[in-house]
Amino acid sequence: MKGLLIGVLLVCTCPLFGQQIDSIPAAPQEKVRMVFMDSVRKERKNRLPVPKKALLYSFALPGSGQVYNGHWWKAPFAVGAIGTMVYFVTYSSDLYKRFQSALEDELLKKPHEFTKFNLGVTGLRNRRDFYDKNRQLSYVGVFAAYGLVAVEAFVDAHLQNFDMSEDLSFKLKPTFQSDPRTGFGGPGIGIVVFVK
């Protein structure tokens, strides 16, 4: 048993590589160019966005954080998400006000726009409360969408700073590990990751 363990540890000490080194050199990368409306061509600097600026821009004007990060195609989705929630707020508020006035008229025994449905006081009150609840949830949705758009711009700016190297390799090597609870230790296998 000990011989098998020693054999496994000796085999695991040899380096393992996840990828082979490419013998063909990479082609030089072209600079990204942006064309503006006045047909003046300006080179986009190889800059990385600052996450705090992206967050502040997105809070100031929804979608501007995405444009700042260079992902302009995300801006309509950001504005659309907030706009949809604002639509639900106005829709629910309108129906809440209509059922509220109909309920007041029903209590005063006056005709109202829902008289032909014969809902009664209980039916009008239930529908009014339903649309009031939807209105409140829609307000929460507006703030949640607003916050998610800002957080997405912040995270996107952070991920653009993330280094994605093409050469990832790792090596297994024997280690001595100790258990902090018992104070005793034993042999183990460690993984060392090399990023070039």
Score class of each variant (00 low, 15 high):
Phe154Gly: 01
Gln20Ala: 10
Ala102Glu: 02
Leu5Ala: 09
Asn46Gln: 13
Tyr87Trp: 13
Val192Gln: 12
Lys171Glu: 07
Ser169Gly: 08
Arg181Ile: 11
Gly65Val: 05
Gly141Leu: 04
Lys97Asp: 13
Pro25His: 02
Leu95Gln: 09
Leu108Val: 05
Ala78Trp: 03
Lys2Cys: 07
Leu172Arg: 01
Val192Lys: 09
Ala145Met: 12
Gly80His: 09
Phe88Ser: 08
Lys173Gln: 10
Leu137Gln: 12
Ile189Cys: 03
Lys2Gly: 15
Leu10Val: 09
Gln66Ser: 07
Pro25Cys: 04
Val67Ala: 12
Leu9Asn: 04
Val121His: 10
Asp22Thr: 03
Met164Pro: 03
Lys53Ser: 10
Leu61Val: 14
Tyr146Pro: 00
His158Ile: 09
Phe36Asn: 07
Thr84Ala: 15
Val149Gln: 04
Leu107Ile: 12
Gln160Thr: 02
Val142Trp: 06
Val192Glu: 12
Gln177Val: 14
Gln19His: 11
Thr122Asp: 15
Val89Thr: 05
Cys12Ala: 14
Lys171Tyr: 00
Leu95Gly: 02
Asp167Met: 10
Ser92Lys: 03
Lys42Gly: 06
Asp105Lys: 11
Arg44Thr: 12
Ala81Phe: 08
Thr175Phe: 01
Lys196Tyr: 11
Asp132Phe: 15
Pro76Gly: 06
Lys52Gln: 15
Met37Phe: 11
Glu152Thr: 14
Asp132Thr: 11
Phe176Asn: 03
Leu119Lys: 03
Glu152Lys: 11
Val8Ser: 05
Glu113Pro: 06
Ile82Ser: 06
Gly18Ser: 08
Lys42Cys: 00
Ser64Asn: 00
Thr13Trp: 00
Glu43Val: 12
Tyr57Leu: 15
Gln29Lys: 15
Leu10Thr: 05
Asn126Val: 11
Pro111Asn: 12
Gly141Thr: 05
Asp163Pro: 05
Phe17Val: 09
Lys133Ala: 14
Arg33Tyr: 15
Val79Pro: 01
Pro180Tyr: 06
Val79Tyr: 04
Gln136Met: 12
Phe88Pro: 00
Gln136Glu: 12
Ser58Lys: 01
Lys52Arg: 13
Phe88Tyr: 14
Glu30Lys: 14
Leu148Tyr: 11
Gly190Cys: 00
Lys52Gly: 09
Lys42Phe: 07
Gln19Glu: 10
Lys74Glu: 10
Met37Cys: 00
Phe154Pro: 00
Arg135Lys: 15
Cys12Trp: 04
Phe154Gln: 03
Ser165Thr: 11
Val50Lys: 13
Asn118Asp: 14
Lys31Glu: 14
Tyr131Pro: 02
Gln19Tyr: 07
Ala145His: 02
Val140Glu: 04
Val50Phe: 11
Phe114Trp: 08
Ala26Asp: 06
Thr122Ala: 15
